[in-house]
């Protein structure tokens, strides 16, 4: 009796431990660092050392200095553009995938996702060389007679960042859209046909609205990944392609102003969380099965 009681006791302790760990890990590795960051954002730096006194100075500087807000805003616009272009390119691709049968569908999907397996930096290098003055894009455009001579329009500026981020992030848009399209029961499309709708009507009234949750999560994925990226702007942005991520990066690097960098991160985090919430809001279906 007492033996059974003690094993029961041990079991209960084990399950308690598991529960504690399950909650503790995210707290220790996610919430605590975020909280520390938030704390740092209220400190300041004097002569290269951090002063642990609370002040709103960093936030005041971010909001009043004429440098930061415009870059912040331009970066948001840039990343929204990236998200929109990614959706516009990914939707037809994902739709095409769902029209394929069985094995082909997944083979092609895998092929589209292969770039995710490659190193990020190598991909950026590759794209940079395609976009560069002697790159494939320029050579092709000149050969086709569209351009008289190679253009510098495609590299070391905002356009370059836009193009590169779009190319890098498009798989993240295809996947959720594909999944949401694939989840639409075929019988709904047949029902729409049966009720007299044309192919276009069925697409606009049934397929498109039912795939919007996938579009919303794709958009928020791409936006969040784009806005957090500092490597791409650093490598293809040149001098004119200045983004918020680069400023942030420099605060932790060359400028060595962690408290100010933390404050900028908090500003960025607010935008990211907002984007995720918006994506989640529209990404939720109306809680419906068929």
């Amino acid at each position: 009796m007492s033996e059974a009681g003690s094993t029961q006791h041990a079991e209960r302790r084990l399950s308690l431990l598991v529960t504690v760990l399950a909650f503790a890990l995210p707290v220790v590795f996610v919430l605590v660092p975020l909280a520390i960051f938030l704390g740092y954002s209220f400190f300041s730096v004097d002569q290269g050392t951090i002063v642990y006194g609370l002040s709103l100075g960093n936030y005041v500087r971010f909001l009043t200095d004429p440098v930061f807000l415009p870059v912040f805003w331009n970066t948001i616009v840039l990343c929204v553009s990236v998200a929109i272009i990614c959706i516009l390119l990914a939707y037809p691709a994902a739709y095409f995938l769902t029209t394929l049968k069985g094995r082909w569908r997944y083979a092609l999907l895998m092929l589209l996702l292969v770039p995710l397996l490659m190193s990020y930096v190598i991909k950026i290098y590759a794209i940079r060389s395609i976009l560069g003055l002697n790159g494939f894009l320029n050579k092709a455009l000149v050969a086709l007679g569209i351009l008289q001579e190679p253009s510098t329009l495609f590299v070391f500026n905002m356009n370059a960042i836009l193009l590169t981020l779009t190319l890098l992030l498009i798989p993240f848009a295809i996947l959720p859209i594909f999944l949401s399209l694939e989840r639409i029961p075929q019988v709904l499309l047949r029902a729409s046909d049966d009720l007299g709708a044309s192919g276009l009507q069925t697409f606009l009234r049934i397929t498109l609205p039912l795939s919007l949750p996938g579009v919303a999560s794709a958009a928020s994925f791409v936006f969040v990944l784009a806005i957090g990226d500092f490597l791409t702007p650093q490598m293809v942005g040149g001098i004119s392609g200045f983004t918020f991520g680069r400023i942030l990066y420099s605060q932790f690097g060359t400028a060595y102003n962690w408290p100010f960098g933390a404050a900028l991160s908090v500003a960025l985090a607010v935008v990211v969380i907002a984007a995720i919430l918006v994506g989640e809001r529209f990404g939720r279906n109306r809680g419906t099965s068929v």
Partner: peptide, 16 residues
């Protein structure tokens, strides 16, 4: 979509 018939599907197929 041009046939003058309509179907009631087994699992209803209502548009969610």
């Amino acid at each position: 979509n041009r046939r003058p018939f309509n179907t009631v599907f087994q699992d209803y197929a209502l548009f969610p």
